[in-house]
Amino acid sequence: MSEMKKIKNLKDFSTSADRFEGANLLCPGCAHSIIVREVLNATNDDLILAASTGCLEVCTAVYPYTSWDASWIHIGFENGSSAVAGAEAMYKALKTKGRLKQPDRVPKFVAFGGDGATYDIGFQWISGCFERGHNMMYVCLDNEVYANTGGQRSSSTPIGASATTTPAGRVSYGEKRNKKDMMAIMAAHGAPYVAQVAPNKWKDMVAKIQKGFAAEGPVYINAMSACTTEWKFAPEDTISISDLATDSLVFPLYEIINGTQLNITYRPKNIIPVRDYLGAQGRFKHLFTKQYEYLIDEWQTRVDAKWDYLQRREEAGV
């Protein structure tokens, strides 16, 4: 194994040379590229990357340009994970046969996918990769909607969010089903490391990514990606909305090791009401009318219950 990059503080981190380039076509204020930067800058090793179809893919590989300074594969909606798994299997085979040209350089294998590619379309492929135990990392850029195609709901869209296929109006409050618990599903595969991260907590995120790189086997990272276009907030508020999400515990930051040990990695000093998080976004605007106001209390109850559950699991060490 090559040595882990030492990142003690933000000044250390800022000496990193980005391997992701500007003039990609992601929206101004998009959290995707903040996450990608924090992942790629967490290591100095060579990278083998793939991105499933989604905002990240279509915006960073627009003919005649590429925004990646590493080996990067343009692949289908469902198989970003399998493409990287294939590259990893090839690497292992060449290593066994002693045919690697630079055997001292150990690359990192990372696949990126949106929540559509992860929770819905690529689910079976990811499950396969985790079952086969490839030594790779899968990063889900979870913006809770199919943002690239115009904001259709995905199985990550939370209750009450207005999406173009679940619009809110007089007869409906928007999305009716709760978000799929992808973290629990991936942990149930027995993966050595599964973690939820948010770009605004960069230190927590970099520590988790490095733990993931150090782990032997498939690693799943669920990264909250606030979407300025579909969550409907001003582009400069990406980080403050992310702060609201982590501090209201809508996106609790935790990790699960070997599927059995859950650790909460961030406990907000002041837990803020979920109402503040919902109120900051246009997609929940209709919840602040008389008709649908009861949903805000339901939201709070659900978030509290989940936080309670996570704390109980952490305490019990399971």
Partner: peptide, 20 residues
């Protein structure tokens, strides 16, 4: 104060930081 918050949160790699 060279805290580098702008560097880490810039989505477009547009904040130039050299030697911290």
């Amino acid at each position: 104060i060279d805290c580098q918050f702008c560097w880490v949160y810039c989505p477009d790699m547009s904040i130039i930081s050299r030697d911290k």
